[in-house]
Amino acid sequence: MAQLAFRNVTLGYDRHPAVHHLNGEVASGALVAVIGPNGAGKSTLLRGIVGILKPLDGSIHLGGLDSRDIAYLPQSAEIDRSFPISVFDFVGTGLWRDAGLFGGIGKVARVKILRAIASVGLNGFENRSIGTLSGGQMQRVLFARVLLQNARVIVLDEPFNAIDSKTTADLLALVKQWHGEGRTVLAALHDMEMVRTHFTETLILARGPVAWGPTAEVLTPENLMVAMRMCEAFDDSAAACAADDAHSQAA
């Protein structure tokens, strides 16, 4: 059964497509790596899935889920780490669905938060300000928040960037645990060896889909070469997309 379905999805900024005409489905419980060079549209696609970015064209179906029920791990550069918030409080934001605007953080919730922090190996860091953490520790904090969200679909934007091999191994084990629990996981990644070894399905993006399917079939030198040749720059004088016209006429 499809958990996510993309119907001629185009996502982008200021009318310029960053991901062009994506069609396909992600099965419930799938473990999908989204790969491609910088600027290929990986983060844009993930933002479209979690509802931060509305498609310029086409649609994304979430298999009956609300986009707010999807756990999203943003790139840590998007987080203002100078803000005075403790690890406990930051991880606790993962309980938003239960607590909302006014809900209290009671004893049960506190135990959940502490367990999530312990699960990522950060015992004793509860009262530390997030601004005092290393890059790897911050990444563990973000994973703890995703744990707490307890979501059916988990979307990870470059979760293993700039962290050491021990932290990567620990966090990768969590990803595999989520997959084992039947959750749907999509992760934007750069490490081809990790993708080949641990991810069953791969989508190669280069501002549009290059290939999508079982990792062993998709991750070929030819496909990667096509992706590498992608043009990063937006063309300000580009004409309106003819494929969109054809699609709307067909519809």
Partner: peptide, 23 residues
């Protein structure tokens, strides 16, 4: 007091707040 929670989350991690709430 009413907007405190979304205000804090929006200050520290605005993308996360947009994925869980329209507040």
């Amino acid at each position: 007091a009413v907007i405190y929670r979304p205000l804090v989350i929006e200050s520290v991690d605005p993308l996360f707040l947009r994925t869980v709430s329209r507040a």
